[in-house]
């Protein structure tokens, strides 16, 4: 059989396309269970099936109670500090992994109640990624840059993220931040967003144009440590395995009235709030 140059080139073209397409499709089918670790795990690492938090609002009284948790998280994760930007730009472009907001904003679909008591109305709540059991962000991500680990952590691979921001549209909790500007860069006055002397060299800084969020301190869990915000919260944030009936979080949930953010959307958030006050069941 002899073929001319034109036929040969056609054949090469078609088989190349088929090859790339085929490999991509079958490669994708194999990846049913995602496992990010490449080395043998640290024996100290914390093991759970569904990590979650219970936030005990009665233990959060002053602004400092909130701020020390926020600082603990943001400093070890090299979250850029954009406070030197003009207020209008900062609010639009800031990165936050953990922050606080009032009841109305935290639970916007809770019944609107003009007669609600003033204390609750003015109280601040901690907000972070809910590490949902059925996360909408994971469902929509076109590259599996955001994925769910077997221990329930909703992870974010900042090296695979293409910056399409579909996850930001999908997340009902506004938990995701996009790097609108270079987080390793400086503001107009030359002030770096991450101060060189404060940079945590053990945690990667991010690049421009990717999405990031709370990753439940996966790097600390791997070393047997609790998440940073939990550690400094004086018991206001309790960490544990929601699938384990004997865990502290489950005991509190069984004993106290707790609420979650937007449960009606079916994402099944793993963050519970105790709003009644008083000591929790220990």
């Amino acid at each position: 059989m002899s073929i001319n140059r034109r036929q040969f080139l056609k054949l090469v073209g078609v088989s190349t396309v088929a090859g790339i397409g085929g490999a991509a499709v079958f490669g994708g089918l194999r990846n049913s269970g995602l496992e990010a670790s490449q080395t043998s795990p640290d024996p100290r690492s914390l093991k759970g099936k569904r990590w979650g938090f219970v936030v005990d609002m009665s233990k959060l009284k002053s602004d400092e109670d909130y701020q020390k948790c926020i600082d603990a998280c943001h400093s070890i994760h090299n979250v850029p500090d954009m406070s030197s930007l003009p207020e209008e730009i900062r609010k639009r472009q800031e990165i936050k992994w953990i922050w606080k907001d009032n009841f109305e904003h935290t639970f916007p679909t809770a019944p609107e109640d003009e007669y609600q008591n003033k204390e609750m109305k003015e109280k601040n709540f901690f907000l972070f990624c809910n590490h949902c059991a059925k996360p909408a962000c994971v469902r929509v991500c076109p590259t599996q840059a955001t994925f769910k680990r077997k221990d329930g952590v909703v992870m974010q691979d900042m090296h695979r993220c293409i910056g399409c921001r579909f996850c930001m549209a999908a997340c009902p909790f506004g938990a995701r931040s996009f790097n609108w500007r270079d987080p390793r860069g400086k503001d107009d006055n030359g002030r770096p967003f991450i101060k060189p002397e404060k940079e945590n060299k053990e945690f990667p800084t991010r690049m421009i144009g990717v999405v990031e969020k709370c990753t439940l301190c996966y790097e600390r869990l791997a070393k047997g440590l609790q998440p940073a915000c939990v550690e400094v919260s004086n018991g206001a944030i309790v960490f544990g395995d929601l699938e384990d009936p004997n865990s502290e979080v489950r005991k509190i949930i069984a004993a106290k009235y707790t609420i979650r953010r937007k449960p009606e959307l079916g994402t099944q958030p793993s963050i519970y709030y105790v709003i009644g006050g008083g000591e929790h069941a220990g």
Binding site: I20, A24, V25, G27, G28, N31, C141, P142, T143, Q144, A145, R160, C161, I162, G163, C164, R165, F178, N179, M207, I208, G209, V210, V211
Partner: peptide, 16 residues
């Protein structure tokens, strides 16, 4: 619109 346009092939490399 993409934040990391140089990674656009990730959509094909990791078909989801």
């Amino acid at each position: 619109d993409m934040g990391q346009p140089m990674r656009i092939t990730n959509v094909i490399l990791y078909p989801t």
